[in-house]
């Protein structure tokens, strides 16, 4: 049988990889991909906790469903922003989008 810690460590690794992608990739679409990886890690955690600790309580699954919805929303809005920015500046490089600079 697989212990809970395996899932948790896997999810941690996936989350860290996603985090690295978010923090270091130049391309905005790639950053979104990193976010997807992080959200997947969260989902793995949620379902693992549900299965191992409280299978009768549906809270874990419900939250996983909501994370799905949030992920879908995030991708929709994020990609729309990417396309909108690309249309204006002919670029999706995150480090070129620095209008918020001092």
């Amino acid at each position: 049988m697989i212990p809970l810690s395996w899932y948790l460590i896997f999810a941690a690794a996936l989350f860290s990889i996603g985090l690295f992608g978010v923090l270091s990739r130049k391309n905005a679409v790639a950053i979104l991909m990193g976010v997807e990886l992080m959200l997947n890690a969260v989902n793995v955690n949620l379902l693992a906790f549900w299965r191992y600790l409280a299978p009768e309580n549906m809270a874990g699954q419900v939250f996983a469903v909501i994370v799905f919805a949030v992920a879908a929303s995030e991708v929709a809005v994020g990609l729309a922003l990417v396309i909108s920015v690309y249309r204006r500046r002919q670029s999706v490089q995150a480090d070129e989008i620095n209008l918020l600079k001092y």
Partner: peptide, 17 residues
């Protein structure tokens, strides 16, 4: 302090994390 306001989201996130 204003030098940390680079305008780059990823650097902000690094600080946040």
């Amino acid at each position: 302090m204003r030098v940390i306001q680079t305008g780059r989201v990823q650097q902000y996130m690094i600080m946040a994390v």
